[in-house]
Design a protein around this nucleic acid. Sequence first.
DNA 1: CTGAAAGCGCTTACAG
DNA 2: CTGAAAGCGCTTACAG
Lengths: 365, 365
Amino acid sequence: LLTSIPSIRCQTCSMRDAKTSAVTMQNVADRAGVSIATVSFVVNSTKNVSPKTRERIETAMRELGFRRNAVARALASRRSHIIALLFPALDHPLETTSIRFVTSAAETASELGYHLVLWPSHYDAEEVRELTGQGLVDGVILMEVLLDDPRVPPLIESNTPFGLIGRTRDPSQLAHVDIDFDKMVEDSVAYLVSLGHHEIAFVIGRATSDMQRDYGPVARTEAAYIRVAHEYGLDSDLIYCDKTFVAGREVAGQVLERNPQTTGILVMNELAAFGIVAGLNDRGLSVPGDISLLSLSTSPTMGTSYQPELSTMDSPGIELGRLAVEALINRLENGPVPDEPQLLPCILTVRETTGPAPTRLAVEG
Amino acid sequence: LLTSIPSIRCQTCSMRDAKTSAVTMQNVADRAGVSIATVSFVVNSTKNVSPKTRERIETAMRELGFRRNAVARALASRRSHIIALLFPALDHPLETTSIRFVTSAAETASELGYHLVLWPSHYDAEEVRELTGQGLVDGVILMEVLLDDPRVPPLIESNTPFGLIGRTRDPSQLAHVDIDFDKMVEDSVAYLVSLGHHEIAFVIGRATSDMQRDYGPVARTEAAYIRVAHEYGLDSDLIYCDKTFVAGREVAGQVLERNPQTTGILVMNELAAFGIVAGLNDRGLSVPGDISLLSLSTSPTMGTSYQPELSTMDSPGIELGRLAVEALINRLENGPVPDEPQLLPCILTVRETTGPAPTRLAVEG
DNA sequence: CTGAAAGCGCTTACAG
DNA sequence: CTGAAAGCGCTTACAG
């Protein structure tokens, strides 16, 4: 019996074409002397099978090196165990933070027995219909969500299960996970105020395309800051800045021009944050000695990629990817739709760019 | 006729479950009064069909909103049009450069009618067997390839078409695309020498795990530098450095200690490059006034993320991803295996960290 | 140019 | 506990 195995291998080997003509359930059933249905039951643990039969089948599977064909399974069961991650590649190039969604989403899917297809697309309804119409994917995850995201309606119409990493304008009916931008801004302002800062500037990334004007994180952070600034009696003006180091370096001048008393800067633009620090230094101001800077929704990698290392509100990229995938798969498997928090906080990580407000005013008084 | 369409829609709508019970070829065939085979012929353009019949079928498809089911097609044709990108998530976190492979690979696949599944895995043969055994993917692309990559043998054994972004120790029998590290080092040294630099240091990223000791780009760059350094009569010692800004800042001291005459530094460690510049500044040296620094295999995004902007040998990430996918799909479709260059150059981009060697020696003489 | 039919490799009621 | 059989929605020789 044992010696027959290698010989089987070799025979098939020599007959192989581009792809291995794989061992099928029928082969296993024949070898174990049972029906194909019974094999299916033990492979999927869908029905009780007597220990003896199970044993025979498992042996046969092992000997033949059986693996269930995912495509046939998908067709018969009407579940492909594939989910698509739609990422708007062209309209919205991936930043440091977004990348973490992707890898953690892929890992989570893999752990739960699913595959993650990376589907590059525009903010376009037709492309979504194209995708869901193929019947390849069980569900879809959207990232870089816009307030009025054109990808959502076709998903609803086609009755495709989906979840968002991000939120539309009114996401109450949609499965989603997102950063809690309100809390992020509240915590940020509270932190700076607790350090004695009262003259605070807010710098935010400028949309690089029309689409991005509608981009959730920016829109929500803007709104939150205006609200919170009023609560604290702070200047609620926003300063826009391109997403580059150089732009940040220049915008530092604008910040000081607008209010020379500024002692704290909140930055929602991780690519410009170090530039702002440099721009302040250019103008003879030290960070955090004269001015504190807190970079919002920023990845640790980015925050530590220069010195002084940025104090940040860490973006929970890994967790967002994981939660979105878990929730979607739960739903696909009719599991409990978890009552977990859908809005995750950014955690304050104090590094080297924030400190007590300078006592300048006190000295004057 | 026209009014019948919405009513059909509605009927199906109300009967829909989690997923749309889609329009099938049978439905189209019935409506057009032809056989299902003929529908298949026009959908796939696999056989000539008379204009009249074709017309009827196309109308029926349009009216019913038909889209061919990808899973059934895959099972029947034995081609899923899915390719897997294996990325070693845990053992080798994605850096700026690697990310570009992923997105450009996904885009290319999509353009060519394929799907790209992101498959996180370790450097492990069994996981690869697991993947290919499922019969889900037509082909596989490996990234972050090791010199003796354990993922290669199971791919060969299972006869799965695959391509590498990177190279094993002897890649001559394998489809691959990679950076031409020899040329990268030659061009880099030639460039610095042409600027008058003769005292050159070479800083390279330290492996953060055992696996990475075997990592192709590092191993090949090391070997190339030792060779080229000998050709030019330069010091061929290598200085290892962790992949962080802080480590770079410290290693600057080591560079100067080893050879106080150093005027040029080649860095194969994009995360440490700015740190080295800062470390040189700490020690009273200006870049590029006193010392020039060229960052190898670096993405433009990284190179411009601080100032002075790094002079770099740009890593052709986008092109690598595209070429790898194109070559694999070509092979899957029995197209011409293109005789294109498999090794791409890094393009020299002079920014702000390189310049003529200081004339110190000339003054002394 | 078109069709009838087998088959891709599974899952899943339905019987027994 | 196990099996016979229909069916998932296509593709593809093979006839005509």
